[in-house]
């Protein structure tokens, strides 16, 4: 059975898109058919990790939401861009990076309900095993809807006091939405912190399991979203943490 998984953070800058891209890549490398939807329509970015720019996007999620195309037409096969041996297939549905189209979204809004129809269409038409939704940070109608229809929710936070408060809100809402599987990930953990102490504190704060505490990585910073971390650094401790999350998704 295919799984829809939302990746969410209450605040920006948690590494949500990078985590989404790397998890999707690992799943595709394992032989699964995987889709990523960039629903961060106001500030899209995940396409950069796959080396895409405006000229590569024949259609985007925006076109689908405005009724200009079927959502399948906005799916770009990025399997070849991974630069690795991939047994499965990876599709990206990017959001438009044209300033005028982002402006139109800000001005006119869009029918968030169309997203759910689109997600289900994508899963069916592309025969996906996993659909990963890279959500907009914070909470709005779209992020709530993404959580509501997901079989799993990955909540990403940094060990930062602002993140702790905001994440508590997200966890509370996810529980009210009966999200079947909630996976907590702590990212960008400073080297000065004991990873196990962070895990314990977060688990105690939110009363839920922390799947992974990912250490801050200079290599990730230097890579600067120019390519996929798990491909470039397959044996890095951060890649091992991504692998743990993937195993949990597959379980």
């Amino acid at each position: 059975m295919s799984k829809i998984i939302s990746i969410h953070s209450f605040r920006g800058g948690t590494g949500k898109s990078n985590t989404t891209a790397n998890l999707a890549a690992l799943l595709a490398m394992d032989g699964f058919r995987v889709g990523i939807v960039d629903t961060d329509i106001q500030s899209p970015g995940i396409h950069v990790i796959f080396g895409m720019d405006d000229s590569d996007m024949k259609h985007s999620l925006n076109d689908y939401l405005w009724g200009k195309c079927d959502i399948k037409d906005a799916a770009h096969d990025v399997t070849g861009k991974l630069g690795a041996d991939v047994k499965g297939q990876l599709f990206l549905i990017p959001s438009s990076i044209k300033a005028g189209e982002i402006a139109r979204i800000l001005r006119e809004g869009y029918d968030v309900g169309l997203l759910t129809d689109g997600f289900r269409d994508l899963v069916d038409k592309l025969e996906l095993d996993y659909l990963l939704i890279d959500t907009h940070p914070g909470l709005n109608e779209e992020t709530l809807l993404s959580m509501a229809i997901s079989q799993a929710l990955i909540i990403i936070m940094r060990p930062d006091s602002q993140d702790y408060q905001g994440t508590a809100v997200t966890v509370d809402i996810a529980r009210k939405l009966d999200v079947p599987n909630m996976l907590m990930v702590v990212n960008k953990t400073p080297q000065a912190f004991e990873l196990e102490d962070v895990r314990e504190r977060v688990e105690k704060s939110f009363n839920c399991e922390v799947v992974s505490v990912i250490p801050h990585s200079e290599e990730m910073m230097v890579l600067a979203s120019s390519e996929l971390f798990v491909v470039r650094y397959p044996d890095d401790p951060v890649t091992k943490e991504f692998r743990i999350i993937v195993d949990k998704i597959k379980a």
Partner: peptide, 10 residues
């Protein structure tokens, strides 16, 4: 029936 219920984001 979640579509056709536009709510402006902003």
């Amino acid at each position: 029936r979640l579509a056709v219920r536009t709510r402006k984001l902003n």
